[in-house]
Amino acid sequence: MINENFSNKKILVTGATSGIGLGISRMLNEYKAQLTISGRNQTKLNKISNEFELSNLNFNKGILADVCNLEDISNLVQEIDTLDGLVLNAGIIDYTPAKLITEKKVIDLFYTNVFSNFFLVQKLLHSKKIKKGASIVIISSIAAKVGVPGTSIYAASKGALNSYAKVLASELSLQNIRVNVVSPGVVKTDLIENTNVTSDFQMSNLSTKYPLGLGEIIDIVYLVQFLLSENSKWMTGSNIDIDGGYLLNN
């Protein structure tokens, strides 16, 4: 039986102002979680925080934080209470063939997708702000498991995240803190649709590679909901592909 009572849970979602992060936040808000969201776009964050405050008395707050900025991460950690759940979702996508990657692209991408999570979790652990029995969910990508041309640094960043999660799960199991990874295939999000390259060049052919068609944000949200809930209490260190069957043929 699915236990959907999040009202007594303090949960932080990063990258919460768009795409999958926003979908997860909306779900948690609907279930009256004591939710804190973070994002780097002030306008979006204010709009969503206002919306959540009106519909959920338990809503905690929206915190403006660029996860690439160590000071922002420190402030974020200072401002939150001890967590029952953490969703590490902040990330960017890049489509650059290996021949054309630049130092700036690599640094930006790895800082946002990988290093920011290292530092956020480190500071949370150091401040003892993750409760025993908490659940950490990391949003990765099936890109790390296949060889789609143009995704070298993005795929490498998600691969790094996958390895990190495995070790983190091992270290935190002693405190009964669970760490699981969700690896989605392509879902229709603003991030994907606004990427010039994907929207025109790849999207047209992309849906044919997914036996069940392209995913929707809600498909990912349900899985994250499960992983944050007590129903997944025996799961840690898992990396779950959710891809409409993409990996069956690739």
Partner: peptide, 22 residues
């Protein structure tokens, strides 16, 4: 297709112009 992708990235990175596949 990889050269098409490379061309799009080249235009954006070197010439600061967003070009569509069309």
């Amino acid at each position: 297709s990889l050269i098409i992708l490379s061309l799009i990235v080249l235009c954006e990175d070197e010439f600061k112009i967003i070009i569509s596949p069309n």
